[in-house]
Simulated assay, not measured.
Amino acid sequence: MEIVDVSWDPEMHIIHIELDRWPGVWDGWRMFLDGEEIPMEGGPGEPVIRPDAPLDRPPTGLIVGTLPWVTGLDEVDFPCCGTIRFYIPGEGLTNPYSYNLVDLGCRTASRKECPSEWTVHEGDIVIGKGETRLISEEKFFQKGNIYIRSGGTLIIRDTEFMMARGGVPTVHVYFFVGPGAKLIIEDSRIYSPPGGTEAGLICVINRGEVEMRDSPTQIHYFDMSGEAKFTMVRSEMINPIGGLLQVTGGETHVKDSTIGALGLSVPAGAHLTASGLHSGVYFDRWDVHELIP
Score class of each variant (00 low, 15 high):
Asp20Trp: 04
Tyr174Cys: 09
Leu19His: 08
Ser192Leu: 00
Pro23Trp: 07
Ile146Gln: 00
Tyr97Ser: 04
Ala270Gln: 08
Arg157Val: 02
Gln142Thr: 06
Thr60Arg: 15
Tyr282Gly: 11
Gly123Trp: 05
Cys80Tyr: 13
Trp118Pro: 11
His121Arg: 15
Asp124Gly: 06
Gly260Ala: 07
Met1Cys: 11
Gly72Trp: 10
His220Trp: 15
Thr60Ile: 09
Cys81Pro: 08
Arg85Glu: 09
Lys129Thr: 13
Ile125Glu: 09
Glu36Tyr: 13
Phe230Met: 11
Thr132Pro: 01
Lys229Gln: 13
Gly152Arg: 05
Pro169Gly: 14
Gly243Thr: 07
Trp286Cys: 09
Met1Leu: 14
Ala164Phe: 10
Pro68Asp: 13
Ile14Trp: 02
Arg207Ala: 13
Gly151Asp: 06
Gly276Phe: 12
Asp287Thr: 06
Leu33Asn: 01
Leu104Arg: 02
Gly200Ala: 10
Pro96His: 04
Ile3Gly: 06
Leu245Glu: 08
Ser188Tyr: 00
Thr66Leu: 07
His16Trp: 10
Gly166Arg: 11
Ile185Gly: 00
Ala274Phe: 12
Ser235Trp: 01
Cys80Trp: 09
Arg85His: 14
Ile3Ser: 08
Asp124Phe: 00
Glu75Gly: 07
Asp74Ala: 15
Phe161Trp: 14
Ile259Tyr: 02
Met212Glu: 05
Gly72Asp: 12
Met232Gly: 03
Pro216Gly: 10
Gly128Ala: 12
Phe222Trp: 13
Arg21Val: 11
Gly208Ser: 06
Phe86Ala: 04
Ala270Ile: 07
Arg285Ile: 03
Glu198Tyr: 06
Thr252Ile: 13
Ser275Arg: 10
Ser98Met: 12
His16Met: 07
Arg107Gly: 06
Arg149Gly: 00
Asp20Leu: 04
Cys203Asp: 00
Gly90His: 06
Tyr99Arg: 04
Tyr147Gln: 08
Gly200Met: 03
Tyr191Asn: 04
Pro293Lys: 06
Ile127Pro: 00
His13Ser: 14
Thr132Glu: 09
Val204Gly: 02
Asn100Ile: 09
Ile146Pro: 02
Ile15Gln: 03
Asn145Arg: 03
Ile49Glu: 09
Cys80His: 11
Gly45Arg: 08
Val247Ile: 15
Leu245Ala: 12
Arg107Phe: 12
Asn239Ile: 10
Asp287Pro: 08
Gly195Glu: 05
Glu290Arg: 15
